[in-house]
Design a protein around this nucleic acid. Structure first.
Lengths: 172, 172
DNA sequence: ACTTGACCTGTTATGATATTACATTCATAT
DNA sequence: ATATGAATGTAATATCATAACAGGTCAAGT
């Protein structure tokens, strides 16, 4: 198992902690750059709607409902019927640029697109911030539990509700 | 950590494998008996609607949507408006007699109510059967991932999509 | 027996989330 | 320039979920 030892690797491998203070403008710009790279490499089209939806999701480390996204799109002059938002979101999710949060029926931008990753989500119940954590160890534990039952796991959804450090401090 | 070594404990602790052939009538009756015990012990009322909803969920090891349950209730002479189903389902979930499957917006009967358990769900993408697996190890792995971020996990949702043994064999 | 109060059920109405189907436009390669 | 497939726009509808209120039931205390 690779354990990042130098800062550069750490930046690449760790979930950029959504809870920690960080240069969010850089965080956003970086995600967009990566998204462009990913789509270009795969011969996909990051069209204006899709790009705009990604930008909207990137504004905050929170999950937005499809209709929230749609409302934003409409004010930007894009179509304002649900499929406009759902299709763009579906595209982003399908290509690893965004994730769907099942518990919230909402979507959040991927914080490190282009890297193979099995994300688990940490959702603050107070401020609704969503962070990605590495799910591989949990996945392994699940595989161990599923194997004796003869079940073959293909995809997992792991979502944890709780308190982020900021909200925990605030409530203490 | 308790590791069941004799058959009785195994019956109590293991997820009754929903995928395996089993005496389903007994499985159902047992779950109802346990439900009665759990509610009685807590001073709760397992009313006719609630009991009937549990029976409906117990008929198969699949998840049913609230409106599916509602339709069944209506033919049994209960009210046929959504809150009737949602309230009963909420009661069952709240007291550990049923679980909500987020990915499916649906509900399934708990296969071992009354035992403290953190369930992970194994959902067959072909036959829609839902089994419970033990989530504690995965939970531990997640806690390990969340701790350095300062996030305190309160509740987790773990749902795995894949192929149950029967459907895997059928497709092979 | 009557009252009270808590809880449960039924119903109306509405809100929130998501998809189907089809028409139109756009990008691109020939 | 134009045929092609992909993407977008729009209308209509399906699906999932809750708020608000009106009665009904039941047990405890009087």
């Amino acid at each position: 198992m690779p354990t990042p030892q130098n800062p550069a690797d750490a930046t690449a491998m760790m979930p950029v902690p959504a809870f920690a203070a960080h240069d969010h403008a850089h965080c956003t710009a970086d995600a967009l750059t990566r998204a462009e790279a990913v789509t270009a490499a795969a011969g996909l089209r990051l069209t204006p709607v899709r790009r705009r939806v990604l930008e909207i999701l990137l504004e905050e480390h929170r999950a937005l409902g499809a209709y929230d996204v749609l409302a934003r799109l409409a004010t930007d002059g894009f179509g304002n019927q649900p499929p406009v938002a759902y299709r763009a979101l579906e595209f982003l999710v399908e290509h690893g640029l965004a994730h769907r949060i099942q518990r919230l029926n909402a979507f959040t931008a991927c914080t490190h697109p282009g890297e193979a990753h099995a994300p688990a989500f940490l959702i603050c119940r107070t401020c609704a911030t969503v962070a990605e954590a590495e799910a591989a160890p949990a996945r392994a534990a699940l595989d161990t539990a599923a194997a004796p039952l003869g079940f073959v796991i293909e995809r997992i959804t792991i979502e944890a509700m709780g308190l982020c450090p900021k909200c925990r401090d605030a409530s203490a």
